[in-house]
Amino acid sequence: MNTTTAPAPGRQTTGSDLLAVALTGATKTFGRTAAVRGVDLHVRPGEVVALLGPNGAGKTTTLDMILGLGTPTTGEVSLYGMPPRTAVARGLVAAVLQSGGLLPDLTVKEMVTYTACLFARTRPVAEVLQRAGITGIADRKVGKCSGGEQQRLRFAMALLADPALLVLDEPTTGMDVDGRRRFWQSIRADGDEGRTVLFATHYLEEADVYADRIVLMARGLVVADGTTAEVKALASGRTVRATVPGGLPTADLHRLGDLSGVDEVEVRGESVLVHTADSDAVARYLLDATTARDLEITARALEDAFVSLTAAPEPSTTPEGSDR
């Protein structure tokens, strides 16, 4: 893994020389339940990373460890080379949690003012309200705000310290499409300044649109990690399906597997399914060299990749991790 580079001579050590997040070999066990089973996650300053996975994949537990809300059972966490608690105290890291963390009897503005006076140095309250797009509801009681408004309030509170790293845990859960779009718009507008963003989501679309890099988690493990394009490429192949009367001879099976672009050949009775990046070659081979008929070619959606990657068979006897 690409880690720290030496600072250029004469330049002050800044955030760009250190990893924003370095989570190494992290595991987290609650009682007998392993929620996270060995995760390495290294985020460089300026990256926008989506932690994608179904419920129970260990996303929230991973983020909690990064934020210092939970200590890893084994493994190491550091943020800009510091323990999470130190980074939080310096206002380097802020988070938008999934729910809670608000006082319903305060107004939106009071809530932000209250949070502001906990920090040594903050941006003006009016400015963060405006950035989060909640200036218009500044005098509304927090308890009377909609889920989307409360989420933007949490975002405003997170912006106060002008954090170098912003962590968001499924920030748009429970919002409607419009609310989600508007929430991400405010994040986007803010992210142009080079803030490092790490967000958990189970919406593929959000990861696709807003992240530079996707880390796919399932069952407490990272199952894929790459640029959005790379992770999408996992799903870019097609499935060729055909019926071969009497079944496909073994020799043909091997030859199919050797074709370039083919990553999986599956035989189900008389049916043969081939996952490949080059469906033309497979179709040509099947029609020319075998007795195949009823040939179908289907594109694989990102959802399929997501499902196939995250729903791999359980390799060990460890119980399924919960999301907490």
């Binding site: 893994m1 760009s16 300053p45 300026g46 990256e47 300044e193 080079g194 803030r195 990690d225």
Partner: peptide
């Protein structure tokens, strides 16, 4: 695992 892709320009204001 392929961490770190120089997708975005370096932060304008370094924290």
């Amino acid at each position: 695992a392929q961490p770190g892709h120089p997708v975005r320009p370096a932060p304008a204001v370094l924290p």
